[in-house]
């Protein structure tokens, strides 16, 4: 038997001893390479063994690539960091990135209606900068500042909005399409708990303000 087989098995042994999945896969790749060498050096070059081993090697290399991507440090942009500061302190930067990957930042000019009474909004908005006013029958009922959700009441209840929401200044929002946000929250119970808490805090403070 070729020494490469022994090297491969020692590497497999080491891979079984480590706890970290990345090291396990790295050692497995080395072991599979050694095994491949051993197979090539074997008289008759058993092709079936080489094919299986190559398949395992490819799977491991792809998984290693994904693991490295997952472990890269996450850098938040200025606006993302501001949202984290305002609303999502309980999320890790990676979780925040995952949540924000499903929507986009939007700018709205002063005086623009962002939620119209009686009309289901297509997005849930999170105000990052500026102020909006909640207007009913021509009367401003309350003002909302950075960190407030807009359109979340329709999102939660399915009812149409009872009031207009109009920007007072030039505003920066983060906007999630309603269906996309619902899907994200359904797929990730951890993220859902954080977002529910953020919306809950916002609802409670709005109720106090009104």
């Amino acid at each position: 038997m070729s020494p490469a087989f022994h090297v491969a098995n020692v590497l497999f042994l080491l891979s079984y001893l480590v706890r970290d999945i990345l090291w396990l896969r790295l050692l497995s790749v080395l072991a599979q390479l050694a095994l491949l060498v051993g197979t090539v050096l074997t008289p008759g070059h058993p092709l079936d063994a080489m094919a299986w081993n190559t398949l395992f090697l490819i799977i491991n290399v792809v998984r290693i690539y994904l693991l490295i991507l997952e472990r890269r440090p996450v850098k938040l942009t200025e606006h993302e960091a501001h949202l984290w500061e305002l609303v999502f302190r309980s999320l890790t930067p990676r979780e925040l990135k995952a949540l924000l990957a499903r929507g986009a930042f939007e700018k709205r000019a002063a005086g623009e209606i962002v939620v119209e009474r009686g009309k289901h909004p297509s997005h849930v908005l999170l105000l990052e900068e500026g102020k909006v006013e909640v207007v009913m029958d021509g009367r401003t009922i309350t003002e909302l500042g950075p960190g407030s959700f807009v359109g979340e009441m329709s999102f939660l209840t399915g009812d149409p909005p009872r009031a207009d929401v109009r920007t007072r200044d030039d505003c920066h929002f983060f906007a999630w399409p309603k269906e996309t946000l619902a899907r994200v929250l359904k797929d990730s119970p951890e993220l859902r708990a954080h977002v529910q808490m953020a919306i809950g805090q916002d609802l409670v403070s709005k109720l106090r303000a009104v």
């Binding site: 979340e152 009441m153 209840t157 009812d159 009872r162 609802l203 409670v204 109720l207 009104v210």
Partner: peptide, 9 residues
Amino acid sequence: RARENAAAL
């Protein structure tokens, strides 16, 4: 809670 807010409005 959202419905309570709407009623408060």
